[in-house]
Design a protein around this nucleic acid. Sequence first.
DNA 1: CGCCACGTTGAGAGTACTCAATTGCAGTGG
DNA 2: CCACTGCAATTGAGTACTCTCAACGTGGCG
Lengths: 227, 227
Amino acid sequence: MDNNCGHKDKACVFHVPIFAGLSEHELLGLEALLITEMYAKGSIICYEGEDSDQIYVIQQGRVKLFTMTEDGREQIFRILEETDFFGELSIFQTEKLSFSVEALTDVRLCTIKQKDMHQLIKTQPSIALDILRTMTNRLQRAEGMIRDLGLRSAEARTASLLVNLCQEQGGDELVLSLSRRDLANIIGTTQETLSRNLSRFQDLGWIKLEGHRKIRILDHEALRDMV
Amino acid sequence: MDNNCGHKDKACVFHVPIFAGLSEHELLGLEALLITEMYAKGSIICYEGEDSDQIYVIQQGRVKLFTMTEDGREQIFRILEETDFFGELSIFQTEKLSFSVEALTDVRLCTIKQKDMHQLIKTQPSIALDILRTMTNRLQRAEGMIRDLGLRSAEARTASLLVNLCQEQGGDELVLSLSRRDLANIIGTTQETLSRNLSRFQDLGWIKLEGHRKIRILDHEALRDMV
DNA sequence: CGCCACGTTGAGAGTACTCAATTGCAGTGG
DNA sequence: CCACTGCAATTGAGTACTCTCAACGTGGCG
């Protein structure tokens, strides 16, 4: 309960995929290097432009990585949750953060210093490979976003968002854990445009809005064809 | 001259950063695994949707990675040149390519099979780290593109493009190696809009268009402020 | 039950797109 | 050397989309 992750028997890192290759012994060693931090829902974990020389691993809760313009418009890069990490550039260099991070729920996370990370990778090179796997997937997702933003209309991106959420959740009953504003900021549009598009999809009979936090998907095909 | 890279004394891989950590002996071993291929300017090296289980390392020339809609609009993800690689997802899985690759010049490249790559990483784990370094940088660039596409006007993206090209080339005299169409497809707009914005910048006295392939930058500040 | 944040709808404006016409440039052959 | 040809780039006109700003609903929580 002191500097570990709040579990009794096992450190949180037992459950993080990128550390899955470590032995029990190595995990215990790693545990000693971690610093655990707590953030309340809505608080900012780090600010774009700050210097950072550590990796952050989320133990509990959800965060958004985003950037903001002077006039307050926001683009979300990704939503991360338990066992995800960010700040990976600081493995190699003191990173000037290119995004801010906000806690969407209460969050518990731990940080690992650059030099500890180096040591860790040296003793267990497979970690680099595990991180690499995550990074290639992330790059692919990022390029998917670039394709959508560059080539598709806000309407198509809205459909794409629904399809993606469906795939993550499985089933026809989407439960939204984000506000309209955040959803809009993921697909690079405004909450008004998103709202209008959802209404249009409803008018077309493709979806059914059930309260503000639920969407029932009625026609997967139509949405997929739109994308 | 058989299955190596055309050099007499040293294989091409001597010059590729991600293999910089290999010993002379290991490089010679690697050389035997490579398959070298040539592509003429304008030819397609691989198609989006194809399965691929190899990494491609560019030895000579330049390529563009892009995706295309049914109606022919195109989004370019990145331009790669000598010593760059692509297809890194196939380190982990047989990859359904999420982009097409076209040779912008005559291109010589070599391919490395997934299983050979595994072997290579096992004998020299630092390679995974070198690739990881490249991938984190690439992800950062990708997120920069997402920010620009999501938050900035075509005009601002045009300014951003000029600033970036300046940084790459150094100096006030930009020499464009891409068509207006390709440049537009990098920043997610049309050639017409790009052309109009360049003309506007010229009218404002920020740049001077000199033929179709050269741009003289007159006011770096103004461009940077626009971004 | 009423408040307040969140979400939706409406009107109007601006940006960027499409399609079409014109201009500019470079390579080729007379 | 110059005119011609074909492609690339620019310019123009009209349209469509999406944004902004504002008003109005709604639903969850005290």
